[in-house]
Amino acid sequence: MSVDTATVKRVAKLARIAIRDEEASRLAPELGNILGWIEQLGEVDTSSVQPMTAVIPNRLRLRDDVVTDGNIRAQVLANAPQAEHGFFTVPKVIE
């Protein structure tokens, strides 16, 4: 399987990881190699198989509709790289 640098860049952009051209060139064959190896899965006939949905048979539990959390703004903001007036802040966004 061959992966080109444009693909690496497109995927890196989707994943929001900045990538320099030389890195993309280095990663392209590496990812191609891994993806090529992964592709052997295609050999397995899975036409009558359901994808696994729960590793161990278990039922999704639902919780009661009770307020048990919140009012912890100080803790929520404690590790923020930048916070002001009770808000997290980010570079201005134009919507």
Partner: peptide
């Protein structure tokens, strides 16, 4: 990829 891998996972189990 993902759906196939999840099916193979069923087979492994």
């Amino acid at each position: 990829y993902f759906t196939q891998a999840s099916k193979v996972r069923t087979l492994i189990a």
